[in-house]
Design a protein around this nucleic acid. Sequence first.
DNA 1: ACCTGAACACCGTTCAAGT
DNA 2: ACCTGAACACCGTTCAAGT
Lengths: 225, 225
Amino acid sequence: MPGRGRPPTISWDAILRAALAIADAEGVRAVSMRAVAQRLGVTPMALYRHVGDKQALLDGLVERLLLEVPLPNPRLGWAARLRALVDDVLVVARRHPGVFPLLLQRPAVTPGALRLVEAIFAALAEAGVPPADIPRTERLLSTYVLGYAASEVGGRFSAGTLTPAQRRANLDRDAYPMHHALGSHLDHRDPQTELAWSLELIEGWVRMLAADQPATSGARASPRR
Amino acid sequence: MPGRGRPPTISWDAILRAALAIADAEGVRAVSMRAVAQRLGVTPMALYRHVGDKQALLDGLVERLLLEVPLPNPRLGWAARLRALVDDVLVVARRHPGVFPLLLQRPAVTPGALRLVEAIFAALAEAGVPPADIPRTERLLSTYVLGYAASEVGGRFSAGTLTPAQRRANLDRDAYPMHHALGSHLDHRDPQTELAWSLELIEGWVRMLAADQPATSGARASPRR
DNA sequence: ACCTGAACACCGTTCAAGT
DNA sequence: ACCTGAACACCGTTCAAGT
């Protein structure tokens, strides 16, 4: 039996959608309470009835991004599920490059984060990783993937305005011998194959942890189950 | 032959030190041109003679952090040098938790970044990694380490106010079966051994790449080599 | 219950001016 | 050359008020 005040004109969800639209178009820095309010045709103070404060709004944005990552098809094997999860994280990162880096700065304890962690736990368990190793393996995987995605959309991997070869020409040969010795190997970077290559490493690690497991449960890592 | 105007009362270095002091004490958010100026006993506009704009100031902060990471002792072996580098990155991250996460968001093309990249290149070359694999192995290592450090100081690994067990009690058993199955394995986390454990993985990968060098790739991960 | 309006204590950055 | 002062267009958030 709610009270009979006037009906709300905005909502938590509408606020989040407006904030995300601004962030995608002009970056997180452009997300201000005033800008969000203006986009909703409302006074800045109207937001505070729904939001708490600006930090809560940013947390809401992070949560929304996490919820955009689809859970993998349960009919796939554990390795395919992990790969799908990673690919989909990258898709979301590229869709919201301004917001994504915030992911690394909030505790991963919200429902949006926990559902992904749960899915990774399940994949690792199915792979045969000993329970004691599962949590840290999950953190290893997600830290790398989040760091990779943040680096890619945040510009850490990009070279600025110069090409790699141009930058190298400005480097002292004595101070940076390896940069000169590697030469053309620094020129091309293929993000697609690089990520896949890294994931093979982690997958190999998972198989190794599973194989090392003492023969108590008898559950060995196998391609299919 | 410089002109004969009045001598400067502040400098780029003094500005950076003031900004870092504020960031360490109150977080990056508290770093404003006005706050830095006040700490230096000067008008906000005085900074613009030395700084360009606020983004340049933040870039300067990032660069300063990178320059704080000491280069490893060249008399150590490659594996010990990599471990020292990683440990020292963590030391700097913990010393400046507010600024460190910015590291993932700027192109790694400044002198402060390049000297560390160069050191990693050299270690990987000494290990015997094929030149074509060195750049992506470096990015794999630094992405993980930076992501790990950012997660640790940024709070992604921390549980907020609740203990892990308390949070687990609030989780639906049907939606989060793995969280319940893992139980006590989620309670304790030892950051020290966890990082070392992850680095062993990367070190093993480096040894494998080095061993694969003569032939083509396609080998499987093996526990020992 | 939900929104408005005015106000407070902040921002980054410009421009013209002082020495 | 280096810094100041005033000004502009912004912030997040409070409080009291309207309906």
